Simulated scan of single mutants.
Amino acid sequence: MHKLKVYSLTLILSVLIFPSHAVAFAPSLSTQVKEVAQWFTGFFDNAQQVTNNPTVPLITMSNCSVQLADNNSVANTQNIYLEQKSNVFERIRFYSFSEGNSVVNLSVRSFVNSDILGGLCNQPEQQRIINISNIATTSCDLSLTWEPNRYIGTNAPNGCPTSTGGKVVSNVTFLNNGVNSLDQIFAANGNLIVNTPIEFRRIASIPEPSFILGILALGIWGNATALSSKVKHKSTQK
């Protein structure tokens, strides 16, 4: 009887001291906004997916943080410029991540004139500035829910209206090394016309100005050192 009590006590203590599953707690909303925006920033493509399934089109995606002119940015909001390219389309959008009610709000808007913005992510950060007048007022919104190691968002079943009278229902998962997205496009009559999931994976980070300047400085220093060596070599030959 005493042995049974000892065994029971040992079992209870082991459960209390060594729980079988660690409980994950969600970070603060402000931290979530910064984290998901950081995960979304960089150069991406779906080449790995295309290798496994050649019927999927190859798409490149460049995402970088941008500033609004005249300090029009809303507090605790992360603004990202997105540029996607493939052989059949080009998509440029303005993404805003902000704090919602226990979730991260994602607002996606188009540009009035996107032609002047192509290649924006190749510019230094201080030059990546967008006029708010060039951003459309209508938006397509999603709510992103935090889960360990990912953020999941959807606007099903209503989706967002298209210019042709149909709608787009979006499902997206943000990972620390990529984005899985599915945009289901429905025609005005309700027929599903696009239903291809895309698996983007990061291939490079967006260079920061200090990094770019460091490379330039290293290049200048290297050229100067080489030139100095040549001059010294010639002077010893005279």
Rank of each mutant, 00 (worst) to 15 (best):
N155K: 07
T145M: 14
P157K: 03
N155Y: 05
S170R: 10
V169I: 15
K167M: 08
S170Y: 00
N176P: 12
V168A: 12
G159W: 05
N176F: 12
P161G: 08
N149H: 08
A156M: 07
P161Q: 10
W146N: 03
P157W: 01
P148R: 07
V168F: 02
N171A: 09
E147Y: 06
T164K: 15
A156T: 11
G159E: 09
V172A: 11
P148F: 02
K167E: 02
E147Q: 13
A156V: 11
T173A: 12
P161S: 10
S163K: 14
G166W: 05
T154A: 15
Y151N: 01
V169F: 12
E147T: 03
W146Y: 15
R150V: 06
G165E: 10
G166R: 06
V168I: 15
L175Q: 05
T154F: 01
N171P: 01
T154R: 10
T164M: 12
G159A: 10
R150S: 13
G178D: 02
E147I: 00
T173G: 02
V168C: 06
C160S: 12
V168S: 12
V168M: 11
V172E: 02
G178W: 04
T173E: 15
G165K: 11
S163I: 13
P148M: 07
V168Q: 08
V169L: 11
I152W: 01
K167P: 01
N149M: 07
Y151S: 02
E147F: 09
F174C: 05
T145H: 14
R150H: 05
G166E: 07
Y151W: 13
N177M: 08
G159P: 07
T162C: 13
V168G: 06
P161A: 09
I152N: 03
A156N: 11
T162Y: 09
G153M: 05
T173F: 03
N158W: 01
T164G: 10
L175P: 00
N176Y: 12
V172D: 00
Y151H: 04
I152E: 02
G165M: 12
I152F: 08
V172R: 02
G153F: 04
Y151C: 01
N177G: 05
T164R: 13
S163L: 14
E147V: 02
F174Y: 15
F174L: 13
N149I: 01
T145A: 14
L175E: 09
N176D: 15
V168H: 01
N149W: 05
